[in-house]
Design a protein around this nucleic acid. Sequence first.
DNA 1: TAACTTAGTTGAATATTTACACTAAGACTC
DNA 2: GAGTCTTAGTGTAAATATTCAACTAAGTTA
Lengths: 231, 231
Amino acid sequence: MTSHDNDAFKPIATVDLAIFSLSPAGLSVLLVRRANAPFSGDWALPGGWIHIDEDADLEAAARRVLKEKTGVETPYLEQLQTTGSRTRDPRGWSISIVYIALLSADDVAERQGGMAAEAEWRLIEGEGVGCPIAFDHAALLKEALGRIRSKVEYSSLPGHLLPVHFTLSELQSVYETLLSRKLDKSAFRKRMAEADFLEPVEGEMRRASNRPAQVFRLKDTRSLALFNRTI
Amino acid sequence: MTSHDNDAFKPIATVDLAIFSLSPAGLSVLLVRRANAPFSGDWALPGGWIHIDEDADLEAAARRVLKEKTGVETPYLEQLQTTGSRTRDPRGWSISIVYIALLSADDVAERQGGMAAEAEWRLIEGEGVGCPIAFDHAALLKEALGRIRSKVEYSSLPGHLLPVHFTLSELQSVYETLLSRKLDKSAFRKRMAEADFLEPVEGEMRRASNRPAQVFRLKDTRSLALFNRTI
DNA sequence: TAACTTAGTTGAATATTTACACTAAGACTC
DNA sequence: GAGTCTTAGTGTAAATATTCAACTAAGTTA
């Protein structure tokens, strides 16, 4: 056994979340205002210590933090990456395991009450938000955005940001928002059919002052479907 | 501040590596025999505690472990994933940050002396090696293999397992080994040209009892090139 | 010099993608 | 209720990419 078994030599370990949702103006991320030092009063990604007496594993810790901040229990959740260094936290050598969560528009609408008071949705602009962020969270957020934008190209990711029920046109519109480019309707529908992650909600049609549209939902709200090719 | 600032509530944190190389029979992974409890005498992925007094960040810790076990300093290195749970280590709540390293055949050949005595290359068969492995390392190895086999489809990954100098036929052969299927020569060369991660070594030809072949090397040994389409 | 082996290229048949036009089905206007 | 408007959803021709296999190239070996 080495001296590194000693607690005094252990790094600090936190779980941090990049929680995304769609607001009318575009993709948004949930930030919280820090109550304590360091960076007291600054905005940060929601996160917290791993509670070794309470959390069974890392994903459970992430889900606990998510529940505390948003009230939502079953979003799409994936591990992004882990950063750790001597300098990223003034309190000492620290590790952050970063998760990405995608909230459906229904969750955001219904759980306004469950949201932590100090939490706020911030619109994504380019590679981040328009304000300074604590720790290295700006870099983590940038990584998360990179992962999301990459996965939009070849996965069903945008479907997890919509309400439970949506039309193909609405889904295409989310892809276009996240990609910042227009897609061809016929090619888009072909991809969706191939990827086979949607199911029509029988008899449900979206009605407006035009031809009604078939309503769909995700076959699986907990995992992504991957395309053979990019969209 | 909460009680979780206390060292007694910190999880254990280690960095573990899945270090791969090509042996004549195929892809191999480096395993070490554990000297101490728990799992004393069992094979495991090489790894170690984070040394908060010595390692600047996580990647530095991974490079330190790699150097200790293989003597190699500049391989391809990427973070795979982080696991953490109450039960994966009998000593307590433990986190493992897992890295994948790819060693070029030159590194393996030259550094036989630098290899740790208790380390051994084990041939990959299917989803792992043919022997039991300590902790949850069998699951971690399986994840690493999944990542590698996935990336072979759309990246220059196999190039990092070859010697510094190689021919296109040799590179194609590594792709075929890792994919367990034959590829079309002309399509393969088209992909390599598009991806633009190789440069010819001027004047260098591989000579045998047939037409000589142009020798190539990677433009960048530290990062992967990604293809537009699968291979 | 002919046979052999692997390197590297070419091209025709086939499949996929792209761009865009077309038809479908409702509401709204008059 | 006929015509217009809007968005849903489909069809298609031209362009592009893939596949498969044959071909030429350049050396060694007998």
